[in-house]
Write a protein that binds this DNA or RNA. Structure first.
Length: 165
DNA sequence: ATAAAGGCCACCC
DNA sequence: GGGTGGCCTTTAT
């Protein structure tokens, strides 16, 4: 996993996915964003806000190709999620959860050696920039509830169901 | 610097 | 089921 601002060949675009339309952004250093936004407008604002220095070129064709690789071919491109040390450690932990399994926010806190930081873990998971590939959807509440999802609970449920089979 | 807001949890009622 | 206090990081004043 890298940690570089997306400066070389920054590209973004939209494509259909099994879970609705998604927005993908990447550079030569890997994927820096994958979201399931409500609107294209909102998704772009979000990008601009997170990378004010970067001028992304739009290329839906390329995006569609990559999205296919991800959801149909199962091929995982290089990731470049940008965040604080704390966030990185959590996003790393998320990638250890096998497909079809789930954990709880508390267990993630335990896994990174900060058992008391449960709440902060929730916030950090909510800040996950690369949906699906960093499987934040596989984390649920300790009391059996499903927990939150930045792009809508319906979406989280859909992904979980889809992964179960 | 400080405050306010979180995808939580355990404990109470 | 619901409410409360504690815990910890991030972001916005």
């Amino acid at each position: 996993m890298r940690q570089l601002p997306p400066q070389s060949n920054p590209t973004f675009g939209f494509s259909d996915s099994p879970f609705g339309e998604c927005c993908l952004a990447f550079s030569n250093d890997g994927i820096c964003a994958l979201t399931f936004p409500e609107s294209r407008e909102g998704a772009f604002i979000d990008l601009e806000h997170r990378f004010p220095e970067t001028d992304f070129k739009r290329d839906d064709k390329r995006v569609t190709r990559i999205i296919r690789q991800i959801f149909e071919g199962g091929k995982i491109p290089e990731l470049n999620p940008i965040g604080t040390e704390f966030q990185q450690s959590i996003w790393r932990a998320l990638q250890q959860i096998p497909k079809g399994k789930t954990t709880t926010y508390a267990q993630i806190a335990e896994a990174i050696g900060r058992p008391k930081a449960v709440r902060a873990v929730g916030t950090a998971i909510g800040a996950n920039p690369i949906a699906y590939l960093i499987p934040c959807h596989r984390v649920t509440k300790s009391d059996g509830g499903i927990g939150g999802f930045r792009w809508g609970l319906e979406c989280k449920k859909k992904i979980l169901d889809w992964e179960k089979k």
